[in-house]
C-alpha cells in the first residue's frame, strides 16, 4: 500500500496526462469520424471509396503499430511533432505535452476515427430515408441535409456504439506507453518495477481509477441519451 501513498504525485500527473491524451484524441476522432461518415454516405463516389479504404486500412492495423509508426517511421519521412512543446509545471511534477504526446494523440485520433465513422454510419442507417428526402425537397444541399437533419438524428441513434468508441479510446491511451508518453500505464510500469511487494495493490488501484473514469463516460452518455429521447 505504501507505494500508492508515496507516489500519489506521479499517479496524479500520469492520470492527468491520460485524460489529456483522451480529450484531444476524443475531439479529434469525433470530428474526423463525422467527416469520414459524411464522405462515406455522400453522393461523390471518389469520396465514398476514399473513406471506405481509409476505414478498412486503419481499422485493420493494430493501434500499437500506428503509434510506433508516428514515433519511429514518420520522422524518417519528415513527419514529426517537434514543434509541440507544452510543459505544464505543477507542484507535483511536469505534465509534458511534447513530440511523443502529440504523435500519440494523432495516432489515437486516426485510429479511433474509424470506429466513430462506423458507429455514426449505423446511426445514419437508422434514420429513415424519408428524412433526407424531405430535407432535399425543401432545397437543402447535401451538407445542409447532413448537418441539420441526418447527423443530429444519426448521433442520437448511434450514441451507445459511439460511447463505446470513446470508452475504448480512453483505455487505448495506455498503448502510448510504447512511445514513452508518461501516462497511467507508463507510471504503473515504473511503480511495478520499483515496488515488487505492492504489485497487487498497484494494479488494483490503477484498474480502479480506470473503472471510475470509464463509468463517468457511461454516465455522460446515458444523460445525453435521456435528454435526446424524442417524445
Amino acid at each position: 500500500m505504501d507505494a500508492i501513498a508515496d507516489n500519489y504525485q506521479l499517479i496524479a500527473i500520469s492520470f492527468a496526462t491520460t485524460i489529456l491524451l483522451f480529450l484531444f484524441a476524443s475531439i479529434g476522432s469525433l470530428l474526423l469520424g463525422t467527416l469520414l461518415v459524411a464522405m462515406r454516405v455522400g453522393p461523390v463516389a471518389v469520396m465514398r471509396r476514399t473513406a471506405a479504404v481509409y476505414v478498412t486500412v486503419v481499422r485493420n492495423t493494430p493501434l500499437l503499430l500506428i503509434l510506433l509508426f508516428f514515433s519511429i517511421a514518420a520522422p524518417k519521412i519528415g513527419v514529426n511533432f517537434q514543434f509541440v512543446r507544452i510543459v505544464i509545471p505543477t507542484g507535483w511534477g511536469d505534465i509534458r505535452m511534447t513530440n511523443a504526446f502529440a504523435g500519440a494523440v494523432v495516432g489515437l485520433t486516426l485510429y479511433t476515427a474509424c470506429f466513430v465513422c462506423e458507429a455514426l454510419r449505423s446511426g445514419v442507417n437508422a434514420v429513415p430515408l424519408g428524412q433526407a428526402e424531405a430535407a432535399r425537397a425543401i432545397g437543402l444541399p447535401f451538407g445542409g441535409v447532413m448537418r441539420h437533419v441526418v447527423l443530429p438524428q444519426a448521433i442520437r441513434a448511434g450514441l451507445p456504439p459511439l460511447a463505446s468508441t470513446q470508452i475504448a479510446l480512453l483505455k487505448n491511451t495506455t498503448v502510448a506507453l510504447s512511445v514513452l508518453v508518461l501516462e497511467a500505464a507508463y507510471a504503473l510500469k515504473q511503480l511495478l518495477d520499483a515496488n515488487p511487494g505492492d504489485r497487487w495493490w498497484l494494479l488494483v488501484a490503477f484498474a480502479g481509477i480506470f473503472v471510475i473514469l470509464v463509468e463517468l463516460l457511461s454516465f455522460i452518455s446515458s444523460r445525453f441519451e435521456r435528454r435526446w429521447r424524442i417524445a
Partner: peptide, 19 residues
C-alpha cells in the same frame, strides 16, 4: 437544391424532421 426550393413536396409518410 435551389430548384427544389421552388417545388414543394408532401409525402405519404409526412417525413417531418423528427428531432
Amino acid at each position: 437544391a435551389s430548384l427544389r426550393a421552388e417545388v414543394g413536396m408532401v409525402f405519404q409518410s409526412f417525413n417531418l424532421f423528427a428531432h
